[in-house]
Write a protein that binds this DNA or RNA. Structure first.
Lengths: 251, 251
DNA sequence: GAGTGGTCTAGACCACACG
DNA sequence: GTGTGGTCTAGACCACTCC
């Protein structure tokens, strides 16, 4: 099965063969592939070589290993589509914030853990919010859960000068969320910018979001403007469970 | 250096230690870490164990290995920010398409390889474009390069019924690009939708985009509407070189 | 208990970079 | 040539799952 004269490393040949069997459907989504020791016999290479091949496919997100059970073809995850136009004022007033709006759209039971803290603005935050470095910011550090499973991390930072004395400094921001409180205090939101990127998770993120290997996170940095920048919100999402959908006018 | 009684695998302890040294700046971005054989001595474990630790950090995108040279802390890449509002008509008429617009903004020399083909619509394409499965679509398969380096893959599909006889079926679509040709033929663009997600690259994508391990790709599916859906464009970008920026009105 | 993946060793040889 | 990472072997023992 393995051509030792081709110059292609054995573990890559094995990986290519298994990948082909996944694509052809011979190994179906959710089904186990043969055990490592079986593959050792099939391909005539050592177990570390088989493990190298499996490691490569796990990295690509094609396989998932479960200790004591086997190695499985990654099942296709159900993807939630998060519409970013839900940031509009109409949608905001109709529910208690973007995440809760998504919950009602997605049919899952939401819960959130919030930690509030105050800290001096670091350079990036000061730059995005138009503050002097070191000015105090209110930090709302949240873990959003859907049916108990953590699905999004979100860290909002707002100038303390505009949150002092408001429910934004409380765990529960009240109806309409932090944006409603801002507008009540004269900070009428004009627009948002969202900067979207992706990277591999830190070990901590992988643990909280229960990501299996080979699953990147999508990073969204949202800056809310009410004339000036009033909030920067760094969000981290599991890329196998969420996609973002943006609406762009043609003119 | 390694606590064999802690229950934490040795390779993870080594990875955690190296990660800490990267975060503290002891191992600086772009600088090499000690050689594998040096680390074997430092931590008192075997070379495969050291390699497991390095593999973990490469997966996380923290380290880059170069054959024959060493293992380096990943340098922070220069990130291009792609503004999606550039899809607006004003910007379109001012230059020859979104990518070329980005080029002038980013100060790099663009080049593109285009392959045209015609094929029956698969299920997803038919669904997005509102066609019957099997209806013929025009496929524009492009590799965009900046200063010679491939930075984006883009595959556009349009109903052949609206591209027949137009420059959209040619390699060179002419001034303003395919969107300008659509509008000339009565398909006035109304809006776009962009669906954004991320995943690890296929081996082919990693090769074309010259991605090092631990770098996911951002996937953008853009659907262009002119009353009806007229184009679906699947784009693949290296996540360490590009971020997308979206502008969202507050109401 | 039997089978699975996870960790680890102590080597060997190859391929690549650089002086 | 010397040092680097890349590949590979033939084991061993551990931890977990399931019957």
């Amino acid at each position: 099965m393995i051509d030792k004269t081709s110059g292609v490393p054995a573990y890559r040949q094995v990986a290519t063969d298994i990948r082909a069997k996944i694509e052809s459907g011979e190994y179906a989504p959710g089904a186990p592939i043969p055990s490592e020791r079986t593959l050792v016999d099939q391909y005539g290479v050592s177990r570390p070589t088989i493990r190298d091949a499996i490691a490569l496919l796990r990295q690509e997100g094609a396989l998932i290993a479960e200790h004591g059970r086997g190695v499985f073809v990654r099942p296709r995850a159900t993807v939630q589509r998060l519409s970013r136009s839900r940031l509009s004022r109409d949608a905001r007033t109709a529910n208690r914030g973007a995440f809760l709006g998504d919950a009602s759209a997605g049919g899952f039971t939401p819960s959130t853990t919030v930690k509030i803290r105050f800290e001096p603005a670091d350079e990036r935050t000061a730059d995005l919010l138009g503050l002097d470095a070191g000015e105090e910011v209110t930090v709302r550090d949240r873990v959003m859960r859907a049916d108990g499973l953590a699905v999004m991390l979100a860290v909002s930072r707002l100038p303390r000068s505009i949150t002092r004395g408001t429910a934004i400094e409380e765990v529960n921001t009240g109806p309409g969320g932090a944006y409603a409180r801002l507008e009540e205090n004269g900070h009428t939101l004009t627009h948002f910018e969202e900067i979207v990127s992706a990277r591999m998770p830190t070990p901590e993120e992988a643990s909280i979001l229960q990501l299996s290997s080979g699953v990147p996170v999508v990073r969204v940095t949202r800056v809310a403007y009410a004339g000036r920048a009033v909030e920067v919100n760094d969000m981290t999402l599991a890329s196998d469970r969420y996609e973002l959908i943006y609406h762009i006018p043609a003119d």
